[in-house]
Write a protein that binds this DNA or RNA. Structure first.
Length: 581
RNA sequence: GCGCCCGUAGCUCAGUGGAUAGAGCGUUCGCCUCCGGAGCGAAAGGUCAGAGGUUCGAAUCCUCUCGGGCGCGCCA
């Protein structure tokens, strides 16, 4: 249960009663009434703004309306205390029984706790990584990969029906260059001296096995084929080998997408014509001449009429070309078709995860999706900022395998998938991230992964000790514990924090911001460690009290609650909780 | 020149209309015979880049200015 929503709903019910009774107008818009946590915990557990938001329309003073609502809430079982404060806040303190019920809810749901039906089964399509199949994934791709994967998990937990997708850019000039590189590497594999890889081709060592594979498939017959045939064979082989290796790298990071869509197949299936016909039928395609771009004008700029999409009708800065000068589709045109395909078959809402360097492309794609669907917010593009890889504060550069960047694989091999995934989410997606290979594996408090894992492991340790001392640690036994034994303010505070997990999931899903989960887990871990440390000074607060069975059972229930919530959160991030460290 | 993102404590960053703006690191001062060691507790520290505006209420929304990053037809 999202308890904020719960108390807000109670207030809304009372408002409806008051409306029916004629005390307030019946046509109030209740959607702006929300619940938050009061700044000062002494003000209660939940603060409602309903009275302040509705006062004007209700033609009442905010505090008077608040008092009216408050007086009706006071009798509710879940509520201990209601106060009207400040400009008209309704501050609610929940009853002890309410918090006990939350802990029982956590124990009975285990790591399923936090799931919500907010999404109501709505289909969301999330596309991420989508790196060109022209080389290995680097850490920047890794960030998008982890972000997309975690966001997908957040959305699933919030009740959305999610499709995870990868778009393979296997058409266009880049893969032609890849094919040429593969052919050169094939000559090398046949024993020819090829010298340094010419500028413009892909220099990385990872193309050597592609050349070798071409030779083992075709031998020197490869070079007796027509140029076109050679190119096609080389391109097909190179793309399939690159994609295999990309899939391997993703799998090593624990990322498994549901669908891999190919740009080439979209063009070949005629989807571009279909999507553009739709735009044309709406009068959004025309022949025209574009102004040269301001600032630096390309040297080979040539004014000519071209086929344009009226992106400016939907908030873009200029209309965008759909055809290149050689008559083939621009990348944008096939991308329109791809998004048309997704929105027609694989999701009512689309999310694209891109690198920040593609920011300039957002408006035109949003414009196209808007034109195709008639909906303004059918597409949300999330941009991930740069990752800098450091080692003890020193910038790390160069990689033998890729030619320039640290690869995702190298990082996974060095620090492990769990560390990679967690650290990638310790920054908001649009903030740059420093990834320090040395610090992220430190076993100290300033390493967030360790800190959270340590909390979970400590909990597991307590349960092991309890078991040795003859207690049952099983949740199904612990639900019978007398939870009123949990009376210390830090124990109660921890329960409240655990109980806010469902709200975190909903907020993260709403905002498309999985990092909120990582931040929440650090908070939950901190609260647990704090309670633990309190037991160092005050032995009566330790979890296991051999002389007090009831207190121990209640505290074990709390420990199981911490385990459930941390495991639930780590699970969403794709990180395996540690039972020992 | 234009567009997008960012500007919050000494540093790295949370906080997408609510009350006295938070955390970690660093600094200062105490504690450390510990269920699990990889420390604990407390304090100091702020013109939320700046200026206007919107309203009961703004770090948050709008406009402008300054500063940083990214991008700007036939690359994807």
């Amino acid at each position: 249960m999202n308890y904020f929503e719960h108390f807000n709903n109670l207030a809304l019910q009372e408002l409806e009663f008051l409306a029916k009774n004629g005390d307030i107008p019946s046509d109030l818009n209740l959607s702006r009434a929300t619940a938050g946590s009061p700044r000062d915990p002494n003000h209660g557990d939940v603060a409602l703004n309903a009275a302040m938001v509705l006062a004007k329309d209700a033609r009442m003073k905010p505090r008077d309306l608040a008092e009216l609502i408050a007086s009706r809430l006071r009798s509710h079982d879940d509520i201990e205390l209601v106060e009207v404060a400040g400009p008209g806040f309704i501050n609610i303190q929940a009853s002890p029984g309410f918090w006990s019920a939350r802990l029982l809810e956590i124990l009975s749901l285990g790591r399923e706790y936090g799931a919500s039906n907010m999404g109501a089964g709505r289909r969301v399509n999330i596309e991420y990584v989508s790196a060109n199949p022209t080389g290995p994934l680097h850490v920047g791709h890794g960030r998008g990969a982890v972000f997309g994967d975690a966001l997908a998990a957040v959305l699933r937990k919030a009740g959305f029906d999610v499709v995870k997708e990868y778009y393979i850019n296997d058409a266009g000039a880049q893969v032609d260059i890849l094919a040429q590189t593969a052919l050169l590497r094939a000559r090398e594999a046949l024993g020819e001296e090829i010298g340094p890889i010419p500028d413009g081709l892909y220099p990385g060592d990872y193309m050597i096995p592609v050349g070798e594979a071409l030779v083992s498939d075709h031998g020197d017959a490869l070079f007796r084929m027509s140029d076109q045939e050679q190119n096609e064979v080389a391109r097909g082989k190179a793309i399939s080998m690159m994609m295999d290796s990309i899939r391997d790298d993703l799998a090593a990071a624990g990322i498994n997408q549901d669908i891999f869509s190919s740009e080439r197949s979209i063009v070949e299936a005629g989807s571009v014509d279909a999507a553009l016909a739709t735009l044309e039928s709406k009068g959004l395609v025309y022949e025209g001449i574009l102004e040269p771009p301001k600032g630096k004008i390309p040297e080979d700029w040539e004014e000519r009429p071209q086929t344009l999409f009226r992106a400016t009708n939907f908030g873009d800065d200029v209309d965008r070309p759909l055809k290149k000068s050689d008559g083939s589709w621009t990348y944008f045109a096939t991308d329109i078709a791809y998004h048309f395909d997704k929105i027609s078959h694989r999701g009512e809402e689309l999310i694209d995860v891109w690198g920040a360097d593609h920011g300039g492309y957002v408006k035109r794609v949003s414009a196209a999706v808007q034109a195709l669907t008639g909906k303004k917010d059918a597409l949300d593009v999330k941009l991930c900022q740069l990752v800098r890889v450091l080692r003890d504060g020193e910038l790390v550069r160069m990689s033998k395998r890729s030619g320039d960047f640290i690869t995702l694989r190298e990082v996974v091999d060095e620090v492990g998938r769990d560390v990679l995934r967690f650290i990638m989410l310790t920054r908001k997606n649009d903030a740059p991230l420093d990834f320090d290979l040395a610090r992220v594996v430190n076993q100290s408090k300033d390493n967030p992964v360790f800190y959270v894992q340590y909390a979970h492991a400590r909990c597991c340790s307590v349960l092991r000790h309890a078991k040795d001392a003859g207690f049952s640690e099983r949740p199904e036994d612990l639900i019978h514990a007398d939870l009123t034994q949990l009376a210390d303010e830090d124990e109660i505070g921890l329960i409240k924090l655990l109980a806010s997990w469902p709200r975190i999931i909903e907020q993260a899903a709403e905002a498309h911001e999985p990092h909120r989960v990582a931040f929440y887990l650090q908070e939950a871990a901190a609260a647990f460690h704090q309670l633990w440390n309190k037991g160092r000074d005050d032995t009566t607060l330790r979890f296991i009290q051999t002389s007090d069975q009831e207190a121990t059972k209640a505290r074990l229930a709390l420990v199981q609650g911490v385990i459930a919530v941390i495991a639930s959160g780590l699970n969403v991030l794709g990180v395996q909780p540690a039972e020992e460290m």
